[in-house]
Amino acid sequence: MIPEIDRRTFLRGATGAGALLVFGGALPLGACVLAQASDPPPDLAVLSPRAWATLACFADHAIPRGGAFEAGASDVGVAGLVDGWLVGADSRLVTDLRRGLALLEWGPLLLGFAARPLTALPPESAGAYLASLTTSRLGFVRQLHAALSELCLLAFYSTRSAWRAIGYDGPIVLGLAESVELERR
């Protein structure tokens, strides 16, 4: 199931990240190497473009292309799906998530890993940085990684691309959109 992100944890952890956000606002967006430098969807409801790019980077790391099956997070737009799923979520949860993503983005600087934010790191460095979070001595950093992983998994494994890849034939009851699509065919 999807984790609750502890507010106190992020308030504590994201204090520095919040300060860096002010600085970061002046940086150009679009250097997200790991997320294939794709543009954020125009209709983001909850996440800012930078938060979306950060999450897209993370999602690419958590669910990469290739391996046992080809489809990965970037093929289905996991970050955008998470954004949609967050509509209606408790505002405190959304705030925590935004702070967590800010911490993730600026973590390379905060943790002395690199002199650039996550979305500006080359893929290998970004991968190494994200992998290092799972063994961080800071509990809230490990929790952040676990929480974001589960959000990405929720989004990815809710898609037909993922279902096809894992041999799941999906819901029996058709949704309205699917019914319309079938009729159109």
Binding site: A62, I63, P64, G67, F69, S149, L153, I166
Partner: peptide, 11 residues
């Protein structure tokens, strides 16, 4: 698990 290892299991 995570990454491709996780996909291996989900496959």
């Amino acid at each position: 698990a995570s990454g491709r290892d996780h996909k291996r299991w989900m496959a």
